[in-house]
Amino acid sequence: MRAVVQRVTAGHVVVDDEVIARLDVSHSRFGLVVLVGVTHTDTPDDAAKLADKIWRLRIFDGTDSADNGSADKGSTDNGSRAERAAADIDAPILVISQFTLYANTAKGRRPSWNAAAPGSIAEPLVDAVVGALRSAGATVETGRFGADMKVHLVNDGPVTILLES
């Protein structure tokens, strides 16, 4: 499994001109937008491991969450103060399935999607990531599997990290 984790100050998903999910960052000031891709060999154990990585990934600064709006929010330079995870500041998470994370662009200019798992395999595993995050205590919103989604976010930093289980 792969995930693109983005530290954000806002995020929501629109399907058919309707907002179906929105991050509530009012208590933490920050959240995560996480795009999750699944390949053929992924398992529920991979989903649990990925969820744990997402929940415990230290990409927020070490100050009180109320001060996270300061100039040094956990920059990604060598002097990074990123010491806190979503678990530490109760940051909400927006999870969106994203089969295109397994695009193969080795030949030509048209991506191949052969490495992406079909919906019958991918959907339950994305749901397993969401379930594991919720079991760990996360507040999680989701996109709609297989829908044409418009994802709106304000990336903070910007901080964008690729994780693999």
Rank of each mutant, 00 (worst) to 15 (best):
I121R: 11
G62Y: 00
G131V: 09
Q98T: 04
V25S: 02
L35Q: 07
A87R: 14
E83Q: 15
I20E: 04
G69Q: 03
P44C: 08
D52H: 11
N78D: 14
L94S: 02
L50G: 09
D52P: 05
A3T: 05
S97C: 03
R7D: 04
A117D: 05
S70M: 06
G79P: 00
S26R: 10
L133S: 03
P44Q: 07
W113E: 05
T105H: 01
Q6K: 02
E123I: 07
T76M: 15
G37F: 03
A117K: 03
G62F: 00
A115E: 06
V15G: 06
D88E: 11
D46V: 10
F30H: 12
G74Q: 08
A117Y: 07
L23A: 12
H152K: 06
D156K: 13
A106Y: 02
D67F: 10
A85M: 04
W55R: 13
A87Q: 12
E164P: 11
D72P: 02
T139K: 15
G108K: 05
A147H: 02
V4L: 15
R29E: 14
V4A: 06
P158T: 14
T160A: 11
R58H: 06
R2N: 10
T39Y: 10
R2Y: 08
T105R: 06
V36H: 04
L133A: 06
G74N: 12
F99P: 02
R84Q: 15
I93G: 00
A138G: 01
S120W: 09
P118T: 11
T105L: 13
